[in-house]
Amino acid sequence: MSFEASYSGIGRLDRLSYRDTIIHRLDPRAKVVATMLFAIAVVSFPKYEVLSLLPFFLFPILIGALGDIPPGFIARKVVAVSPFAVFVGIFNPLFDPGVVSIAPGVPVSAGWVSFAAILVKFALTISAALLLIATTSFPGICRGLRRLGLPALFVSQLLFLYRYLFVLMEETMRVVRARDMRSFGVRGTGVRVFVRIVGTLFLRTVERAERIYGAMLARGFRGEVPSMRREALRLSDAFFVAAAGSFFVLCRFVPVPQMLGRLVGGLAG
């Protein structure tokens, strides 16, 4: 992905996260915990299980719909980061020659089934992670992580990183643009030029950090980044986690699609 494409993708997710919907208003802790439970439930299925995973799609679909997040945007991002999982998974059909039948008289390689399971799990977990950041502002997630017990120093790192992410990406993008504009062909994009760009950007970053430190001192900084936001968990947050959690447990242990299929089959027959 080109620099500008990644940059605009991050910017769009970031802007989405400041919307105001029923999902955005939930406490960040509730969403972090629910997304984590979701990931654990999804990956806990054995490698040949595909159908039982399908009900889990309801979670990202609901979050996306209630949070008013464009589904195409999330889908494109999921596809964009899929290469490693696809790369590893594609070997399953090659190395797993067993045969299973997915319907009477329709034999399929077991490797393809486990490959499909990897892809479905991938789509589920990645879209859930993207929807978490699309419906929760990053500072909100950081406050949540702090309240969940992560060290203050680490959380303040995350916050500073986020604050200067866009500033430095813009600065870097200007430099990269200037490089690409004048490096007809490969010469200008080699390692030597790259090292100099990174070195210069590093020195500028250090100088910026010194100016920021000055601005912090001017406002009484004495080694601790203060925080005063202490939102209490509301009933709706607890309800959200409880509902999501029970849904995951239900779908993990009850094969909903099979039951539904038989029910429909029974009615038709």
Partner: peptide, 13 residues
């Protein structure tokens, strides 16, 4: 692969 692979399972999915 057994539990989830019957025809009704597919339909249900």
């Amino acid at each position: 692969v057994d539990a989830g692979t019957s025809l009704s399972g597919l339909i249900g999915g």
